[in-house]
Amino acid sequence: METILASTAAGVFFLLGMGAFGTAIGFGNLGGKFLEGSARQPELAPMLQTKMFLVAGLIDAVTMIGIGMAMWFTLANPFLAYLE
């Protein structure tokens, strides 16, 4: 029982940590490129902004799925079912 909980907890740390790591880098690059683009051509800023928000939604898609799985593992641990 304890080993299952411990390993699930370790798994959840990785899920959340890696997800946050990837999302942070993605948003950093995205924001940086957006600022560069709108600095070079300020009149394009509104169009770039909608595209940026679209890609922002796509970036954290996989991370959010990871977070959803991590929350599921913490709250309703499916691996415990194999105990009995």
Binding site: G57, I65, G68, M71
Partner: peptide
Amino acid sequence: VSLALRLFGNMYAGEL
């Protein structure tokens, strides 16, 4: 699958 889980993951994490 990605369409559904993206929306679900975001709102589920927000709710939590």
